[in-house]
């Protein structure tokens, strides 16, 4: 049927129908495009970080800055392929006989003089403004879903919602630089939407093939003048036995990982 042969009212009706279909078509296209892009962004970042498969030993320098004073400590994190983590200290001396085991939402502390592991809250403040979750690493790709994404001239803003109520921070907002596709800022929220911590990422570089950044953490609730800076010193792959990541084995961890 030729469009010219249709009378006015019929033409209008068909135009409306065509526009409606076109709009619906574009809407269907745009929604999965937006979701896929946000997911792709997180996957891309995760891939470049390169800690997804295998076990690793990470050495970090943790600095606490309070006004003009700076204190530092050196932390070694053993990351198993199952995401179980053991956090130990190489400095200061008084903490070298302590270690913290993180298995999902369970956290234990072992101290040599105590001779047995004790369960502690993951909220325990150990690293200045950085809690266990930040030191052990937050998995934004697998523990969160993208609730919303906005775009500015320079950044993607992703709003994430935790998939499990047991996750330490229920909501997170990420600012991702559009050109380099790297995270520049994250704000972590409680379940009620209250902002808890701000993380700033800068000085991106490659470390043994892993893309890492310096991370500055600030508490948004109290002690706002203090901040903690984490710097990765080394990342190396290492076979680690899963049996070593158990509270009963914390006293023998060094024996089991052969370090």
């Amino acid at each position: 049927m030729s469009f010219r042969l249709l009378v006015g009212r019929e033409k209008r009706g068909i135009k409306i129908t065509i526009y409606a279909f076109l709009s619906l078509f574009l809407l269907c296209l745009s929604t999965p495009v937006m979701g896929r892009d946000a997911q792709q962004i997180l996957e891309d970042i995760y891939e470049r970080q390169g800690l997804g498969a295998g076990s690793f030993v990470l050495d970090l320098q943790v600095d606490s800055v309070d006004g003009n004073e700076t204190y530092n400590a050196y932390v070694r994190v053993y990351l198993h392929a199952t995401k179980k983590q053991m956090v130990t200290f190489t400095n200061p001396e008084r903490l070298t006989n302590q270690s913290f085991l993180v298995i999902a939402t369970n956290t234990w502390m072992y101290q040599k003089g105590l001779n047995r592991p004790l369960r502690i809250s993951a909220q325990q403040k150990l690293f200045g403004e950085a809690g266990i979750a930040e030191i052990a690493g937050i998995d934004y790709l697998h523990d969160y879903r993208v609730a919303k994404m906005e775009e500015t001239a320079t950044h993607y803003q992703l709003e994430l919602q935790a998939l499990d109520k047991k996750v330490a921070y229920q909501q997170a907002k990420l600012w991702v630089d559009k050109d380099r596709v790297v995270v520049e800022k994250i704000i972590l929220f409680a379940l009620n939407g209250q902002p808890l911590k701000e993380l700033l990422y800068y000085n991106y570089r490659l470390l043994n093939g892993h893309q890492i950044a310096s991370i500055e953490i600030r508490n948004l609730l109290y002690e706002k003048a203090q901040r903690t800076v984490m710097n990765y010193l080394s990342i190396r792959g290492k076979e680690l036995p899963e049996e070593a990541f158990d509270p009963l084995m914390m006293s023998k961890f060094q024996l089991l990982v052969k370090e």
């Binding site: 939402t105 369970n106 956290t107 369960r119 502690i120 809250s121 993951a122 909220q123 330490a168």
Partner: peptide, 12 residues
């Protein structure tokens, strides 16, 4: 037993 309620409280 020991139990973490994930709100700062741990029971044992």
């Amino acid at each position: 037993f020991s139990w973490d309620f994930l709100n700062g409280l741990c029971l044992h």
